Simulated scan of single mutants.
Amino acid sequence: MNELLTKLAECVEFGKINKAAPFPPQMKGQDGADEITRQALDSGVPAQDILGEGLMPGMERVGIKFRENKVFVPQVLMSAKAMSTAMVHLKPYFASGEAKQKGTFIIGTVQGDLHDIGKNLVAMMVEGNGYKVVDLGTDCPAEKYLAAIRENPGAVIGLSALLTTTMTSMEKITREIKNAFPETLVAVGGAPVNDDFRLKIGADVYAPDPQGVVEFLNTKIA
């Protein structure tokens, strides 16, 4: 059992999606996240253990490498694809309640901003670390976040922006969320954002990279 989970973590870390996938070259011809997840379930490994002891350690290692500039966006996307392929097999167990996710994270790019690579990386990393992710997409007004909070009580919010011109949207949205739901935690990030800006607008945390969001969630929810 442990051997399968160790292999699964490696598949996620190095982006080995399935046996047919040529990437990474050093794992060519080997089973990938798809096959190993099915083997683990068929062997009786609980879905919770597959998530917690296979997928999450792999995604955590990717997140740390990305923070340290040891891997770059294409490798992270391959890892996220491997993780998503495995999650397809696990989602029925979450739906049935047999396996539990840690909490809910709602993320979107703020109104006026159509950039989504950073948002997508955060969403993938957070999901890979055991959270349910509600992705609102891009160009999201405050109303969209407020509606999602009503549907997902207790969720943490992530606001992303790439343009300096949309930082005013981030400020407005944070204020409206805090007015309507004072207890809701708001995380902000993106190229023009820093911790001084986070303090100015009243958000709870600034994360410079996806792993920072995961670490914040783990301290507040897990």
Rank of each mutant, 00 (worst) to 15 (best):
Gln111Ser: 14
Ala95Gly: 03
Glu151His: 03
Leu114Glu: 03
Pro141Asn: 00
His115Pro: 06
Glu171Ile: 03
Glu98Trp: 01
Thr164Met: 07
Ile177Ser: 11
Met87Glu: 11
Ala180Leu: 12
Ala86Gln: 05
Met83Arg: 07
Lys172Ala: 14
Asn129Gln: 10
Gly112Val: 08
Met87Lys: 09
Lys102Ile: 00
His89Tyr: 15
Val122Arg: 07
Ala99Leu: 03
Gly112Trp: 03
Ser79Phe: 11
Thr109Asn: 01
Asp135Gln: 10
Pro141Phe: 01
Ile149Glu: 00
Arg175Asp: 13
Gly108Asn: 07
Gln111Arg: 11
Thr168Tyr: 11
Ala82Arg: 04
Ala99Asn: 08
Val110Pro: 11
Ile106Val: 12
Ile173Thr: 15
Asp139His: 12
Leu90Glu: 08
Met170Lys: 05
Thr166Pro: 12
Phe105Gly: 09
Thr165Ser: 14
Lys178His: 07
Val88Cys: 06
Glu151Ala: 14
Met87Leu: 15
Lys102Met: 09
Thr109Tyr: 04
Tyr93Pro: 07
Lys102Thr: 01
Leu163Trp: 02
Lys100Glu: 13
Ala80Phe: 00
Ile117Cys: 09
Val156Gly: 00
Ala161Lys: 05
Tyr93Asp: 10
Leu114Asp: 03
Gly103Asp: 04
Thr109Val: 04
Ala80Met: 04
Phe94Glu: 03
Gln75Pro: 00
Ala155Leu: 02
His115Cys: 12
Ile157Tyr: 11
Leu121Arg: 01
Ser160Arg: 06
Leu163Gly: 03
Ile157Leu: 13
Ala82Asn: 05
Ile177Phe: 13
Glu151Pro: 01
Lys119Met: 05
Ile107Pro: 06
Pro153Gly: 02
Met124Val: 00
Lys172Glu: 15
Lys102Asp: 04
Ala95Asp: 14
His89Gln: 14
Gly128Ser: 04
Lys144Ser: 14
Val156Leu: 08
Ile177Pro: 12
Ala148Trp: 11
Glu98Val: 09
Met87Gln: 10
Val126Arg: 05
Lys91Trp: 15
Pro153Lys: 01
Glu143Met: 10
Val88Phe: 13
Lys119Ser: 01
Ser79Gln: 09
Asp135Trp: 12
Arg175Tyr: 14
Asp135Glu: 08
Ala147Glu: 15
Leu136Asn: 11
Gly118Asp: 05
Leu146Lys: 02
Gly130Glu: 08
Thr164Gln: 07
Ile157Pro: 04
Asn129Cys: 15
Ala155Tyr: 08
Gly118Ile: 06
Met78Lys: 14
Leu162Trp: 00
Gly112His: 04
Thr138Ala: 14
His89Phe: 15
Leu136Phe: 14
Gln111Trp: 10
Asp113Lys: 10
Ala180Gly: 08
Thr166Arg: 01
Glu127Arg: 15
Val156Ser: 05
Thr165His: 05
Met167Phe: 01
Val134Cys: 07
Ile149Gly: 07
Glu176Leu: 09
Leu90Phe: 04
Gly154Ser: 03
Gly103Pro: 02
Thr166Ser: 10
Thr165Ile: 12
His89Val: 01
Leu159Ser: 07
Tyr145Asp: 04
Ile107Arg: 00
Asp116Lys: 06
Tyr131Glu: 10
Gly130Arg: 02
Gly154Gln: 06
Glu127Thr: 09
Lys178Ala: 08
Leu146Val: 04
Asn120Gly: 13
His115Ala: 13
Thr138Pro: 00
Phe94Tyr: 15
Ile157Phe: 13
Val76Met: 13
Ile107Ala: 13
Thr168Leu: 12
Ala99Ile: 05
Ile117Val: 15
Met78Ser: 11
Thr166Trp: 01
Asp139Ser: 13
Val133Ile: 10
Ser84Leu: 11
Gln75Ser: 09
Thr166Tyr: 00
